[in-house]
Nucleic acid binder design. Structure first.
Length: 226
DNA sequence: GTTCTAGAAC
DNA sequence: GTTCTAGAAC
C-alpha cells in the first residue's frame, strides 16, 4: 500500500509543477500517516486512508456481490443511482495510466462481468451504463455499472452528475481500443476533465436545462419507469 | 471518495 | 432569511 504511493509520488515529483507537488505531498503524507500510525484506531486499522476504500470493501465479504479468479464486484458504498456496482480486478492496477496491452483480455472480462450483473433478473427493464472515470479518486481501476435512472440521495453535486453524463465517463471499449492501438490508454487532459466536470447541468434523457442540482433531481423523477 | 460550512445566489 | 454551491480538510 505504502509502496504504491511512494512510487506514484516519485513520478509526480519528477514531472509536476511546484503547486501540484505540494498538493500531492500533502495527500502522500496523509496516506503515509495512515500506513505508519503505530496506534491506529480500530476503524483506521480496518479501512486506512479513504483512497484505499475500494480495497477494503472488496476484502469484506459483506460487500461482495460476485467474484471469480480475476475480479470482484461490489455495490458502490454511495450509489449514484438505484443500482450502482463496481467491477474491480484482483490484479493491483492502480489507475488507467497503469494499464498495459497485456491487460486487454482482463478488461474484456471486466466488461463481461459488468454485463452479467446488469442482466440479472432483479434488473429487468433497467438500462445500465458502463464506464471508467477519467480521473478516479480511489485506487484500483474500477468499472462503474450504473442504472440510468440516476435517482439517488447520494447524488448531490454537479461533479457527481457530470462524472457520469459527460465524456469524463469513459467507454470501456474506447479504453481497450486505445490500449490496443497505442499500448497505453488515451485520457483527456486535466484541463479537459475540469471542463467536463464544470459543464452546465443538463438532463441526460431530454433537453431540460435545470437551474441547479435540486431542480435536476426533481426533474429526473419524471423519467422514472418501473 | 465524503463531510462540513462560508458566503454567493436568490 | 433560506437555498445552494464550492473548496478545505494538516
Amino acid at each position: 500500500m505504502c509502496t504504491i504511493i511512494s512510487i506514484s509520488t516519485n513520478v509526480i515529483l519528477k514531472y509536476k509543477p511546484i503547486q501540484v507537488i505540494s498538493k500531492y505531498c500533502n495527500f502522500y503524507n496523509m496516506a503515509k500517516r495512515d500506513c505508519e500510525d503505530e496506534t491506529p484506531s480500530p476503524k483506521k486499522q480496518k479501512t486506512g486512508h479513504w483512497s484505499m476504500g475500494l480495497l477494503a470493501s472488496m476484502n469484506d465479504p459483506m460487500n461482495i456481490v460476485k467474484s471469480d479468479d480475476l475480479v470482484t464486484v461490489i455495490k458502490d458504498a454511495y450509489p449514484k443511482a438505484e443500482f450502482h456496482y463496481l467491477v474491480i480486478p484482483k490484479d493491483n492496477i492502480s489507475n488507467l495510466k497503469a494499464l498495459k496491452k497485456d491487460n486487454i483480455s482482463l478488461l474484456k472480462h471486466i466488461e463481461e462481468v459488468g454485463r452479467e450483473i446488469a442482466n440479472l433478473e432483479q434488473h429487468k427493464n433497467r438500462t445500465f451504463n458502463f464506464g471508467y472515470h477519467a480521473e478516479a479518486s480511489m485506487f484500483r481501476i474500477h468499472l462503474h455499472v450504473i442504472s440510468d435512472d440516476m435517482n439517488s440521495s447520494h447524488l448531490k453535486t454537479k461533479k457527481h452528475w457530470n462524472s457520469y453524463t459527460t465524456p469524463f465517463f469513459l467507454k470501456p471499449e474506447d479504453i481497450r481500443k486505445s490500449l490496443k492501438k497505442n499500448g497505453k490508454v488515451s485520457l483527456p487532459t486535466s484541463q479537459q476533465c475540469k471542463e467536463y466536470i464544470n459543464t452546465p447541468l443538463k438532463c441526460h434523457k431530454c433537453d431540460f436545462i435545470p437551474k441547479h442540482m435540486p431542480n435536476l433531481k426533481k426533474h429526473i423523477l419524471t423519467h422514472l419507469t418501473d
